[in-house]
Design a protein around this nucleic acid. Sequence first.
DNA 1: TTTTTTATTGCAATCGTTTGCGTCAACGTT
DNA 2: AACGTTGACGCAAACGATTGCAATAAAAAA
Lengths: 345, 345
Amino acid sequence: MKIEQATIKDIARELNVSSSTVSRALKDYPGISDETKRKVKELAKKLNYRPNAIALSLRKSRSFTIGVIIPEVVHFFFSTVISGIEEVAYSRGYNVILTQTNEKLDREQSSIDTMLSNQIDGFLVSYSKETKDFNHFSRLLDQGYPIVFFDRVPEIPNAINVMVDDYQGAFDAVSHLITQGYSRIVHLAGPKNLKISQERERGYRDALKNYGIAIDEDLIVECPIGTSDEGQKITKSLLDNLKQTPDAFFGNNDMAAVGAMLACKAAGLRVPEDVGIVGFSNWQFCSMIEPSLSSVAQPGFNMGAKATEMLLDIIEKKVNPEEVKEALTLETELLVRKSSVRLKG
Amino acid sequence: MKIEQATIKDIARELNVSSSTVSRALKDYPGISDETKRKVKELAKKLNYRPNAIALSLRKSRSFTIGVIIPEVVHFFFSTVISGIEEVAYSRGYNVILTQTNEKLDREQSSIDTMLSNQIDGFLVSYSKETKDFNHFSRLLDQGYPIVFFDRVPEIPNAINVMVDDYQGAFDAVSHLITQGYSRIVHLAGPKNLKISQERERGYRDALKNYGIAIDEDLIVECPIGTSDEGQKITKSLLDNLKQTPDAFFGNNDMAAVGAMLACKAAGLRVPEDVGIVGFSNWQFCSMIEPSLSSVAQPGFNMGAKATEMLLDIIEKKVNPEEVKEALTLETELLVRKSSVRLKG
DNA sequence: TTTTTTATTGCAATCGTTTGCGTCAACGTT
DNA sequence: AACGTTGACGCAAACGATTGCAATAAAAAA
C-alpha cells in the first residue's frame, strides 16, 4: 500500500553506477565528474529522494534527536520552555522527542529507558515532584550522556543546570510588597523537595529580614499540589484561624496566588486595599483577571533556548562539560500590576 | 568518553555463540537450549543490554514513532490534546515527536519533511492558520502515509478527522444566552479559513434563527489573532460605534471572550447583569476570573487519545483507512458560570 | 552398524548510508 | 616504449538486529 521511498540504491541502479558514487555525487564530493553529479542530482529530485535518517543514525551512532522530559505540558511555564527548546533544536537540525512524567517517578524512569533505546543524543530534564533521589541521572552522567537540567535542577556533581534566579525573584516580590506597606505576608510555599521552592522561600525570608520584619513560621504554608483550589482552601483556613489576619500573600506560583485572591474576596477583603498579592510565573491569565495579578515573570522561552544551546554545544563537542562548572541563572522580572499596589506612585 | 552501549554482538562474543543465537535466546525462540537462554539473559542483564531501536527501525522499516504537528503548545487546548496523545502512544509502545508550526505554513512543510526523513509511522496533524491549501497533505495520503487530523481538519477526500462538535457547542452556548434573556449577541468569530470557525459561526446563526432572532451581520466580527488584547480592542470599538449596544458576547475562544469582558467592564457595563459572555475552550482561567466565565469545554485529552488510537489502529492494520469514512465527532459541554447567568435558577 | 530424526546453533543476507582503499583506463613525461 | 599521474568510479565492510536456510552433532530408530 505504502509507496516506498526512493533510496540511493534506486538511483544507482537506474543510472548504472554504484551507491558510493551516488552518495558522493549528492554531497558534491571531489572525484566525481560533473556529468555524473548532474545526472544523479537530477534523478534524485525527480524521485523525490530523501535521505533515510534512520540509516544515517545507525551508521553514525547518532540520532540528531534530543529527549525532553518534563512534568506537564499543560503548565504554562513549561509550554513556553518547550517553545524555546523547539526553536533552537529545530534551527540546528535536531528533532525533539517529548515525554511528560505527570510528576511520576516511574514515568521518568521509563522515559529515560525508551529514549536510551532510541539512541538519543542528549537529555533535557526537569524532574518530577516525586523524584527525591537522583541516582538514575547520576548513572547517565557517569556513562557520558549529555544532560542539561532546567528549572527543577538536582544538586549532583557535574550536573549542568539552567535555572531562573528564584531567590532574587522572590526577594524582589516580597520587598515590593513590603514597600507597599504590607507587613504580615503569607508565603504559599511549594513542595519542599524542589530546589526552586526552597530558593523562593529563602528569598521570602531574606526580604523580610532585610526590612527588619520578624519571620512568623505560621505564615509559611506548603501548597504541595499547586492548584488554585488548594490555594483557596489554604487561604480560607488561614483567614479563619490566624489570630492576626495577614495583609499580603506571596504565592510560590500563580495558581496558588489566584486561589488566595479568590478566598480573600470571598472573605470580604479588598485587593489591593486590604490585601496585597503577588504570584510567580506570570501565566497568561495574570493580566486578564481583576485586579490584575502582579507576578514574577520567568523567561521560559529563553530558558528552553539556552538549555538547548548548551546541550547541543556539549553534544557537538563545542564545549567540554567539565568546563561548564557554574549553573546558568537567568534573571526574573517582577511585573507589578494592580493586585499589589496601594500607594500612589 | 561516552560508554558504549552493549550490543548483541558483545554478548555473542563473550559467550562464544553467534548473534543469531543471542537474538533468539533473548526472545525465547524455540530451538535454543534452556542453558544458553539462561546464560544469554544473565549476561544481557549484567551488561545492561538495551536493544538498539534505530537498528530495529532500519530492519523493520518502521520507527514506532508518530509525528505530531500542532500550531502551538502554549495553547491550553492543544496542551491537553498532547497529554492525550502521549498517554495512548506511550502505552502502546510508540514515541512521539512533536513540532509546533507557530501557525506558519513553511514550518508545517519542513516539519513534514524531517518527519518523513525520520521514517515516522504516521502523522497527527492540526494545521496552521496559514494553511489554505492541502496539497501537501493529499500527497502524503496518496503515498499511503497514515494521517489523522484533529480539531483543525481539512476537507479533503480520504482524510480521517477527529473533531469536536463545534456547531453544537456554539449552538448550545448561544441558545443559553438567549434563554437568559440576551438578544443582541455579538459573535467574536475566528479565522474564516478554519472549519472550526465556520462551524461555530454556523451554530451561532442557527441558534439565533431557532429563536426567531434576526441576524445582524454587524454583530459578527472576525478576530484573526485570538488574543485577549484583540478581543478587548474589537469590543471597545463595537461598544463605541454600534448604534444599539449589544447585550452579549459569544467568543470563538476564551481569550477573545475575556477581552470582551474587560472592555465591557471598562465601559461601565456590569457582567452578567448588563452583558452576558460565553467563551470557547474552557481554559483554566475561566473559573479564576470574576465573574467566572461560562465556556464550551472541548474534550482535549480525549480528542488526543482518540486520534492516536485511530492512527495506531491504522498503522498496525487493525483497521482499514478506507473503511473509516465518517469523521469522529466528540461532544462538547457547556459549562455555565457566572458571566452568563442573570436569571434566578 | 547404518539411517533417520531431533535438538541446537551458525551463515549470510538484509535494511540504507558512508567511506577507506583499490582498480583501471587515459593521459603526460622522459 | 616504459613509466608515473590523475581522474572517475566500484568494492566491501560497517552500524545492530532479524530470519530463512543450512549445518552439525547427538539421539533414536531400523
